[in-house]
Amino acid sequence: MAEVLFYHLEAKPLEAVLPQLLEKTLERGWRAVVEVGSTERADALDAHLWTYRDDAFLPHGRAGDDEADARQPVLLTTDGANPNAATVRFFVDRAVPGETGGYERIVYLFSGHDPDAVAEARIAWKALQAGNAVTYWQQEPSGRWVKKAG
């Protein structure tokens, strides 16, 4: 059974939230794989994670090199593979969750400003409730997270 966290982005965009969540993941000693909905978006997030803060370094890579992928603490991908043996899987930019087996935690981030993303999150919520501990977190205008369900 995986712990599944839904993050409903309202006040801050993905680019502000994802690096913080990845930092916390690495602080816990976990590896992460971030599944992105498109190659173009994966490229943009890859560039952003190198420069999002002057005083931080978030080690990560793009999937595509089998030997290097296995060593990455954070790996960006557009498919369902887990080449770095991650224990946490992030779904962003409308990537659709599939199998949760093998992960301690699933993190599903979606924009509250995109009606299609909200509709897809509702479908994912229903699908992932079976056999998983699911919680739903929504941002307040201040950016603070409030648990709304689960």
Rank of each mutant, 00 (worst) to 15 (best):
A124M: 02
P115G: 10
Q139R: 14
G102S: 10
L75T: 00
L14C: 08
L18M: 07
A121R: 00
G131V: 09
K148A: 14
D66Y: 09
V118P: 14
F57M: 13
R94K: 13
V36R: 01
A127R: 15
E40I: 04
V17G: 01
K24E: 06
F57C: 09
W125D: 01
M1Y: 11
L58Q: 07
T135P: 00
V88N: 08
P83E: 09
Q72A: 13
K24G: 05
P141G: 03
L22W: 11
R105Q: 07
E27H: 15
L22V: 12
T25D: 00
P59Y: 08
H113Y: 06
P115F: 05
F91E: 02
V74G: 05
P141W: 00
F57R: 12
V17T: 00
A95F: 08
A86Y: 05
L22P: 10
V33I: 15
V146M: 01
A85F: 04
T25L: 02
H48N: 11
L21F: 08
V34F: 06
L18R: 07
A95N: 08
F6R: 04
E120P: 03
H8Q: 06
N84G: 06
P13V: 08
G102H: 07
E10N: 13
E15W: 07
T51S: 15
D65E: 15
G102F: 08
T77H: 06
G112V: 00
A127P: 04
E35S: 09
G98T: 10
V96Q: 14
P115K: 11
L26C: 11
V92F: 04
L18K: 11
K147F: 09
G80L: 11
Y52D: 04
L45Y: 01
A124E: 01
G150N: 04
L26D: 08
Y52C: 07
Y108Q: 12
P13E: 07
H113D: 14
K147S: 08
Y136E: 03
L49C: 06
E120D: 15
V118I: 15
Y52R: 08
L9K: 03
A124I: 02
H113I: 03
E67G: 03
A85Y: 00
P83D: 06
G37Y: 00
L45M: 12
P97F: 11
P141F: 05
F91K: 06
H48F: 12
W50G: 13
D46M: 05
G64C: 06
